[in-house]
Write a protein that binds this DNA or RNA. Sequence first.
DNA 1: TCTGGGGTCCTAGGACCC
DNA 2: TCTGGGGTCCTAGGACCC
Length: 426
Amino acid sequence: MIALVDCNSFYASCEQVFRPDLWGKPVVVLSNNDGCVIAANKEAKALTQIPMFEPVFKIKQLLIDHDVSFFSSNYTLYGEMSQRVMNTLKQFSPQVEIYSIDESFIDLANMRFVNLDAHGHHIKNTIFRNTGLPVGVGIAPTKVLAKLANRMSKKIAHYKHVCVLDTPEACKQALKDAEIKDVWGIGKKHCQRLNNRGIFTANQFAYEVSLEWVRKNMTVVGERIWRELRGEPCLSLEMLPKAKKAIGTAKSFGNKLTDLGLIEEACAYYISEVSEVLRKQNSCAQFIQVFLQTNYHSDRDAQYSNSITVTLSTATNDTFILTLEATKALRTIYKSGYRYKKVGVNLSGLIPQEFVQMNIFDSVNPQERSALMQTVDKLNQKYGKSTVNSGLVGNRQEKWELIKKDRSPRYTTQWSELLAIDSNWS
DNA sequence: TCTGGGGTCCTAGGACCC
DNA sequence: TCTGGGGTCCTAGGACCC
């Protein structure tokens, strides 16, 4: 059996943990740039029927009318809270797959004589005691069924956030009750295609659609879902996080930009961020992609977007080399006269640092540069992000940085911020 | 005026090799 | 007139996830 443990409205719950005054009240968390709603707790969902990903400007009044508290996203806080949850989970099984920031699969094999329902409640209660975060637990023979069980644990009140599907009958009933769109791995497109064929429930999908059709129309990915719904495990637990194959970042500017200089500074900053991640996994990148775009939602602005990929003569994770290359690339695609909304960088062709093929024409000493980067990383870790950075990043961040007007303090990592808000602690 | 960001996996088709 | 067979690698595009 496999358990899926998933935090309820994770980002909103993280905000509430440190704000007892908001317990039981509606809370939503906004995306980067405060653009749209990305998390809402159950009180907020119930009160306002806020659809997720709704642009904030469309529902601002609704939020105010219902006295909904809203927060800019605070990923430093959510990342730290996530670690606390995952550490607690590791007490329950050595086999934990951290699937995302707020959910994990855990292996419950060899627990034949344990009451799984009681065990699920024990997990749920321990996490709440240790972190203050509410979770749902779904237990079933396959990952796809565990996902379904988890969903039911939250939706159907009498489960009290723990749902176990441990008999063929229980699985069958769950499939009959589940809409096809609620199955993990079935997105909008496949859902529409299945609906068109008269398939509306998970049970119909698993028992009325032929494997041939699934294979032909939904590839092997669909086949795995189909089999897993029938109780045949196809997806194993991935305990070791895989090295990333690409690392990128792209964020909207706080305000639209026309000036190449400012865009270059934002681009240089993003490069410093992604190359730090690259060094953390001891990889080097062979390719850099840079892209630039205007606001495609606007029908007033002239539209332009472009991207370019450059191949490096030697794979590297050196911030300074990557920044120079990215800047050069950016200059080739930039065209004046447009109001740009976003610049992005993507490092790919990632290879382990020790496999890098040196280039006979390279002028930098790789050992010296690697030592330099290690020092930069250490300084930034000790004294805060971007304490030391390339001069190309400049010092005009407020001109392009994204907007996070309503970010909560970094309660768990920044003591100074915590002290500053002691008024919340009555 | 204001609309997120970071990923993965799979397939088909083209280019190329011997 | 008749024009093979077995591969690999790369890319773009589609679909999905949180």
